[in-house]
Amino acid sequence: MKFRTLALAAVVFAITVPTGSGAQEATGIVAYRETAMKALGAHSGALKSILTDQTQLMDQVGIHARAIADIAAAIPAMFPEDSLDPPTEALPSIWEDPDGFQAAADRLAKLAGDLDAAAGSGDAQASLAAFAAMGKDGCGGCHADYRKKN
């Protein structure tokens, strides 16, 4: 079986037109929103570090949670119509379903607010649960519908 496969692959390789595409950097508003999204990711990474490892820094959870809530509220403005210049990981569903996209940004802002509130009460267990909910439903929930890759 392996020989058949190999022989066939060799034949096809010989007749196939190679395709290639050079690496490309995002520009303009696509580049901006990628940076802003990376900032969200960095705050989220900081929260994970505090909540799972550096628990003596619990009083800093609110800083990151509020930053995420503020940036979340700004997300819809980062995606004006037709801002799909490649390379971008944004899916067209953002503009096909603007209400759903707005709701997803609102949901992240609300869940980040919940995390801020949980951290403010000093309850480590509740903060972890709020962080998990924010990550899964806030970040992941939006990425599931509106972002390509991974």
Partner: peptide, 28 residues
């Protein structure tokens, strides 16, 4: 193992990013 556990539960990558489209649905 902890990174993988967090990822398969929440979709969170070790750097704080969260999985998108296909994998987010698989996790969810």
């Amino acid at each position: 193992e902890g990174d993988l556990s967090l990822f398969l539960q929440l979709g969170m990558l070790p750097d704080g990013d969260f999985a998108g489209s296909g994998m987010a649905k698989i996790i969810n």
